[in-house]
Amino acid sequence: MSHGVEFCGLSLAHPVINGSGTFDAIAARRAFGPALERDFPFAAYVSKTITLAARAGNPAPRLWEAPGGLINSIGLPNNGLDGYIAEDLAQLAELPVPLITNVMGSTAEEFSALVGACDQRPEIAAIELNVSCPNVKTGLDIGADPQQLAQVVGACRASTRKPLIVKLTPNAANVPACAAAAQDGGADAVSLINTLRAMALSPQEGGERRPWLGGGTGGLSGPAIRAVALAQVAAVAARVSIPVVGMGGVQRSSHARDLIDAGATLVAVGTETFRDPATGARVAAGLRALRRTGEGFPTA
């Protein structure tokens, strides 16, 4: 049986991709040289989140190690849409896999401008919307409010015919309702889970206790969130008919298989890549071996 997967019209060599913001292919080429392309661990490459204007990111410290996980407040540093297109795109297009560009705006207009620009670029195979962002006018997380979400996705849908993936926020009262809203707005797929809102206080004893992270709060990822991810992926897959990309705490092929059995078509690896950059390849090889042993699980 082939290991390949059809996903929103893309033919992928296997079902494992990276979580946005957890693998910088341009920096990795500097660190690992030509082995990056030769042993590229993911079946598609998802860029980190791109915004209209460039962002420097949050002040240090940006990381806190939690039990079995990581709280980050990176703050979405990126060169902005123009910088991404001028500087990054040509390098990312050389990767041996399709490119999915992840974008974030703070209004429906910003989102659709970003999506419209990506639509013009042949290097970009699909677009992922990071909707874990407060609406500047209402202060509510766009992705946490089904009505706003459907409106934003609708605006983006009108700006592109490329596959549109909506990356849901787990910090919402009713995640399946948000997934349904994304589908109603015209999404081709949903991905989840993004990081869970979390915080750590500075370890120093006595005196005023301040948040450790430069951004105040951050997002929790890694094994600590795996069980939450499984529950949310199962609930969303039961609710929508479009494909689901499952992620959260995947370290091994058995974790990826759990997400697939819960209804995911693709699985993304995030934080575990920090511990071993070859994790994606190892998870994909493990899934392949599981299939060979005939423990067949639903194919896409």
């Binding site: 913001g21 957890t22 693998f23 910088d24 341009i26 920096a27 990795a28 500097r30 660190a31 690992f32 980190k48 990111g57 240090a60 410290p61 940006r62 990381l63 990581l70 980050n72 990176i74 540093p77 934080t271 890549t273 920090f274 950059p277």
Partner: peptide
């Protein structure tokens, strides 16, 4: 403080 060491986590 580093999570990855190869430019992935920022």
């Amino acid at each position: 403080g580093m999570a990855c060491g190869f430019g992935a986590c920022y």
